[in-house]
């Protein structure tokens, strides 16, 4: 990769309780590209986004955004840095006491001194881009899951950020909204020249729009490369994941005692 680097993750270690989530992860997110981070459920993909956003602190290692170490910043500088980031949450995370319009206007009202008329124009432009200009007076509780995520996308890019973090943008969507979201993310990225980090395990959709892919498993980067190279990768982990095989290095069964012995366990030893 010769592109300039926007986000650099160096030797990242992170654990929750006694479970190690990351054991030395190194990543480089190139400027202006869509980088996907993939991996089986429970590998800490969302945790990685939270580490990049500075909401969690790593045990060891560094995360540099545009050369600044996220976890060495003061609370104030961290909030300043976050103004240059947008994040699309899995649940949408719209503010339930504000309507669609005010949700998208929220970051503008907080961070800019723009007059109301201009805020209105910007919000309508963003809502038009996600096709929900007509839904601007609805409350979040009146939106379908797909619509909520589109509003959240409009809100995430309201301030024209440099970096957008997508947390599982395709989870739980019907095929139509899935297609809409894939197109939207691609389009928005191209139009605004954003750097995008997308965490996902929807292989087909993700590979179709990502420029570069990292696969994480067992707390480490298993493989990385362009979508084309990953499709022909021979590593067992990568193959199981990319081709969706039920059993492989990631076992189908949760660790358990021998099935036969378990069934025949004498009464009184049930657990």
């Amino acid at each position: 990769m010769d592109d300039p680097i926007m986000v650099e993750v160096k030797d990242l270690h992170f654990s929750r309780g006694s479970t190690d989530i990351f054991r030395g992860v190194d990543l480089q997110i190139p400027l202006g590209k869509i980088t996907a981070i993939m991996g089986p459920s429970g590998t800490g993909k969302t945790t990685l986004l939270k580490l990049i956003g500075g909401q969690l602190v790593p045990d060891r290692g560094q995360i540099l955004i545009d050369g600044q170490d996220v976890h060495k910043l003061s609370r104030r500088s961290l909030f300043k840095l976050r103004r240059r980031m947008g994040m699309l949450f899995q649940s949408g995370a719209l503010f339930s006491d504000l309507d669609v319009f005010e949700n998208v206007a929220f970051p503008l009202r907080i961070h800019t001194e723009l007059p109301n008329a201009m805020i209105r124009d910007i919000v309508l432009m963003k809502l038009q881009a996600v096709g929900l200009r007509g839904a601007r007076h609805l409350m979040p509780s009146e939106l379908s899951g797909g619509m909520a995520r589109r509003v959240a996308l409009a809100r995430a890019v309201a301030l024209d950020p440099d970096l957008v973090l997508y947390d599982e943008p395709f989870v739980g969507q019907d095929p139509i909204s899935m297609g809409v979201l894939v197109q939207l993310i691609k389009k928005v990225n191209l139009a605004l020249g954003l750097t995008a980090v997308m965490v996902s395990h929807d292989i087909k959709e993700t590979l179709s729009i990502a420029d570069y892919v990292y696969i994480i498993a067992d707390g480490k980067v298993m493989a990385h490369g362009s979508p084309q190279t990953l499709n022909v990768n021979d590593d067992a982990h990568v193959k199981q994941f990319v081709h969706g095989e039920p059993d492989g290095p990631v076992p189908f069964h949760y660790p358990a005692p021998d099935f036969f012995e378990d069934i025949l366990a004498p009464a009184g030893q049930f657990s």
Binding site: G53, F79, R82, F89, A93, S96, I110, R155
Partner: peptide, 18 residues
Amino acid sequence: GLMKATEQLTSMEMIGVD
């Protein structure tokens, strides 16, 4: 609590609002 459960607090932090 419900704001926290629906990630509203986190998203507010990410927008840069404490």
